[in-house]
């Protein structure tokens, strides 16, 4: 089989996002959440600016592998502009997807580019890499959301 199978994991969208990540920056004076991937020592900070229950801006900083960087980048593009409740639903769908569980076509549609990352389900050692930024965002929005509800 060899390295050819890598093309399934490292699709163009993933490589593009890893090499040219979207929203990789700090946002000043907003809440952030820090998370580590204990297996490799990579870490991420996710920042979000929320008003009236809507995520006006979301960004991340940190270093990591192709999968974690691409996943973080795509996460920001999927979640930006969404209502917190909707965003957390998408995060939950994504989490199901990367664990190899079936999600609805509608959810797949809404995840957009993020749906491509679903392929990590076939690379179990990398699921944590894909999940890191989304977990961090969920924790952050959980705190934020608590204020609005």
């Amino acid at each position: 089989m060899g390295l050819a199978k890598l093309n399934e994991l490292y699709k163009a969208v993933i490589l593009d996002n890893a090499n040219y990540p979207q929203n990789k920056r700090e946002i000043e004076n907003v809440p952030k959440f820090h998370m580590d991937n204990p297996t490799c020592g990579d870490s991420i900070d996710v920042f979000s600016k929320v008003s009236d229950g809507v995520i006006d801006d979301i960004a991340f900083t940190g270093s990591g592998c192709t999968i974690s960087q691409a996943s973080a980048s795509i996460m920001t593009t999927v979640i930006k502009g969404k209502k917190i409740k909707k965003a957390r639903q998408l995060i939950s769908d994504f989490s199901q997807l990367i664990q190899g569980k079936k999600i609805s076509d509608k959810a797949m549609d809404e995840l957009g580019d993020a749906a491509v990352i679903g392929v990590v389900a076939e690379f179990p050692a990398r699921i944590k890499c894909a999940a890191l930024a989304w977990h961090a965002a969920d924790e952050l929005l959980n705190k934020e959301g608590g204020k609005d509800d």
């Binding site: 089989m1 390295l3 297996t39 490799c40 990579d42 990591g64 592998c65 192709t66 050692a125 990398r126």
Partner: peptide, 25 residues
Amino acid sequence: IHPHDVATALDMNGIAVRAGHHCAQ
């Protein structure tokens, strides 16, 4: 190239290596 990516790629060639901080942060 991040070591996790290296390890996944090597695994595709049947080669088992470790990637990470090796419990020595």
